[in-house]
Design a protein around this nucleic acid. Structure first.
Lengths: 173, 173
DNA sequence: ACCCGATAGTTTAGGCTTCAAAGATTGGCG
DNA sequence: CGCCAATCTTTGAAGCCTAAACTATCGGGT
């Protein structure tokens, strides 16, 4: 319960020259802006998925994961790719199965796992949704200069690297 | 129900020279990377808020909004700032009130609205959480060169502008 | 052959989130 | 004054999400 010494935080190098209180305000502002962008886009996509296809983003994401893996995926695979919990996928898969978009089938030789695959209906449905989705994203980010878009893409890669690097030590003990 | 002509999508100008199928893949890749970054960071912050303070991100965000407005905010104000629905804030406020971090009080002259304010305990609690939070973000994004961080910040501003521009026409009829 | 740690999935409890509909109040207009 | 449209909040139904506990199965070492 000593809230002060839990914070490995890079209190080295450049902090010295920055002076003042720790002053990690820059990173914070960056994070808040990143979050705003993501929230804005995500919210709009959710709204349109509901409006035009009467579906949700998690459903769409699950279909997308399966679409990229014609041989099917286990629930665990899906959970890792979507970066969501196990139990979450169970429920999602159950609902999509009930709608006939996805099918569970046993995996030979391992009675623990089951493969999840798109049904024909699921493929058709996802193709429709996917085309619209791609258009929406292009519409929302179309205001960016191509050069800016490329630069942003690269810098986000850097950011991703920074986050993963900060995460991996404790994540894999 | 004609799913084909609902898609205002910029099918003009640069699409012509790009050739091929509509080919908005660039924007899509950019969006997916942006989303990955946000999800990664957000997930880590959620985990740590739970682990270290036994709280959640929405609670933290609500406290943060109130902390920036010493005079208090109506539930509606909070809802707009957090970009979440009205009903959502009701429940959030109720739980935080039960924990003694926030208080509802009637607004003079308008019995429909109520002001939400931090209690003394809420202020203390948020100060602790906020300091840790700032450190976490700095840790996660600390791997970025300061110049890259600045560039990223600027480009995200552009992206935000692009999204808002694409949104505002239909959002305000 | 048996046990035991690792892996796959489900369940449960609790919280977050949205949309839509309902309640409560206000302020203005005839 | 009385109505009514606009504003603020709450409620209810449904779905999403996590952590943690539980079940089932697998595979290897003794």
């Amino acid at each position: 319960m000593t809230p002060d010494d839990m914070m490995p935080v890079a209190v080295d190098a450049e902090t010295a020259l920055a002076g003042a209180p720790p002053g990690h305000k820059d990173e914070l502002r960056l994070w808040l802006r990143l979050l705003t962008c993501a929230t804005l886009i995500e919210g709009e996509i959710r709204t349109r998925l509901r409006r035009d296809f009467d579906t949700t983003l998690p459903r769409f994401d699950l279909l997308a994961a399966l679409d990229r893996a014609p041989a099917g995926l286990t629930l665990g695979d899906v959970s890792r790719r979507m970066m969501v919990s196990n139990g979450n996928v169970t429920g999602l898969a159950t609902r999509l199965e009930a709608e006939g978009l996805v099918e569970r089938r046993a995996r030979l030789g391992d009675r623990r796992a089951q493969m999840l695959r798109l049904t024909a209906k699921g493929k058709r449905e996802f193709a429709r949704q996917s085309a619209a989705h791609e258009g929406w994203v292009a519409e929302l980010l179309g205001g960016l200069e191509p050069a800016d878009r490329a630069a942003l893409f690269r810098l986000l890669g850097q950011a991703k690297g920074s986050v993963r690097a900060a995460l991996s030590p404790e994540e894999t003990p």
